[in-house]
Amino acid sequence: MTKRVAVIGSLNYDIIVKQQRMPHQGETFIADALIQGPGGKGANQAAQCAKLGMPTMMIGKVGQDRFGDALVGSLAAIGVDTSYVKRIGSTGLGVVHVMPDGDYYSSILKGANELLTIQDIEEIAEELKEASFIILQQEIPHHVTEHVIERFKDSQIQIVLNNAPARSISKNILQYVDLLVVNESEAAYMTGQPVTTIAEATETGKELQQITGNTVIVTLGKEGSIVVNSKDSIYFPAKKVNAVDATGAGDSFIGALVYGLSQGFLLEECMKFATEVSAITVMKEGGQDSFPTKAEVSRILVI
């Protein structure tokens, strides 16, 4: 049986500015280039799942504007089911400043993402029950994210939560999350502990694992990632590549991770696969356009 993923989250139109550095306060700084395209953590994760060939449905909201047209159109073009993307208000925007080493600074205008409601989820609850995975992030209203986790806690659906941007979540909710994915700053926010080294990330991952009781992944950008479960913690170094733009790389990682799980890969195999996929992503400019397809990563599908 083919496993299906439902992504409930944000859709943002990205405006990406490439520049040598961020301006100082009060300074006008001349940038090098402008790239525009589809983004948003939810849409990005859905895009990567679909590009790898996984049946994917997107649940969210965009505006009644040209940005909304572009976002829905781009997802539909790569095979995402956009039947559950509603149109209201103005589309969320992401303004991203990309530095020469690929690192970035990002600001978000919530727009229609903030208008997603519990009622929207309840209207499609039966359809969601057909999914094998639900992926959530934190660019939609917090209470909607928590409702989804509680609503499907007793189902066979695996709940994947990317707590980004970082928000406080009660232990009562986290215990129903099957897979928690956070980067170093999000892990630090959740535990109140600094995360600047691999050792600190490992300890933080263990602390979060004690809360969820399930699997926790702490991503460290170009330093790699750590997976912690009830039995062990394993460090996976990032692949050394010529990084051009890290925009969406974390979302690409999550999409690839869930794809691996859907194929029955062992968790260690999923981590290696997701690391390879995100490495391909950072070698190209832009967000979703840089995400590799199944054909592009076919050389590493047999792990």
Results as ranks from 00 to 15, higher is better:
I140P: 05
N12Q: 12
K294V: 03
A295W: 01
S74Y: 06
E114W: 11
Q209Y: 11
M99I: 01
T202D: 11
V95P: 00
T202I: 11
L115E: 15
D120T: 08
T2L: 15
H97K: 08
V227W: 07
T191M: 13
V95C: 09
V98Q: 05
L220F: 11
P55T: 06
I121Y: 14
F273Y: 15
S90M: 06
G287V: 03
G37T: 07
G248I: 07
A238L: 02
K41T: 10
V277K: 01
I78W: 02
I159Y: 04
E139W: 05
D14S: 15
E122V: 13
H147E: 13
M283R: 10
N113T: 07
K206G: 11
F152K: 05
I78K: 00
P38C: 13
S230L: 12
A33H: 11
Q19T: 12
A188N: 01
S298V: 01
C270R: 02
H143W: 06
V182K: 01
C49G: 08
H97G: 08
I8M: 08
G73F: 13
Q64T: 14
F29V: 14
V96N: 06
T215G: 07
M99V: 07
Y259A: 06
L174N: 03
E186N: 06
D245S: 13
T191A: 06
E296G: 13
P38I: 10
D289G: 14
D154L: 06
G250D: 01
V258G: 06
L301Q: 07
V144C: 10
Q193R: 10
N183G: 09
E186H: 02
A76W: 02
G255A: 08
V80A: 09
F253T: 00
G42P: 11
A199H: 09
N214L: 00
S185M: 10
S185F: 00
I140V: 14
V85W: 03
S74E: 07
A295K: 07
P237E: 11
E276L: 14
Q36K: 13
E123L: 14
L115M: 15
I300A: 03
E126M: 10
P237W: 04
K206Q: 14
V144G: 09
S230P: 00
M190K: 04
S225G: 13
Y104M: 13
N163P: 08
V228W: 03
G264M: 13
T117K: 03
M22D: 09
Q193D: 15
I59L: 15
S170A: 07
L220G: 09
K41E: 13
I135T: 02
G213H: 04
V228K: 00
A274T: 04
G248Q: 05
S233V: 06
A166M: 09
I135G: 00
H143K: 01
